[in-house]
Amino acid sequence: MPISRHELEHLCRLAHIALDESEMVDMLGQISTVVDHVSRLQSVDTEGIEPTAYAVPIDSVVRDDDTELSWPTEAVLTNAPRRYGDFFEVQSIFE
């Protein structure tokens, strides 16, 4: 099933990815090919089959409710592209 250009633009918005024109053209064909391939799954009878999220049993892991030191602020901010005092600085979110 081919993906439409409109659909691809919508997916890019959802994923916060900008594509230039040539990337958009390549991506349309490639995503459609892969989606077409994985669509074969529709032919498998899975009536009554439970889905698997993890292949091994995952149990909740808890620790004692003791206070632990967290990272120092400077370590957390070491890789910050922009900072304002002890905060990450970002551009405006609201108009």
């Binding site: 993906i3 691809l8 997916l11 890019c12 959802l14 994923a15 916060h16 990815i17 900008a18 594509l19 230039d20 990337e23 390549d26 991506m27 490639q30 995503i31 892969v34 989606v35 994985v38």
Partner: peptide, 19 residues
């Protein structure tokens, strides 16, 4: 994300978003 990710990573993010 446009500048930072290569073509295959973008493909998989978009594919993952689709499914």
């Amino acid at each position: 994300r446009e500048a930072g990710f290569g073509a295959e990573v973008k493909r998989r993010i978009i594919l993952g978003t689709y499914v």
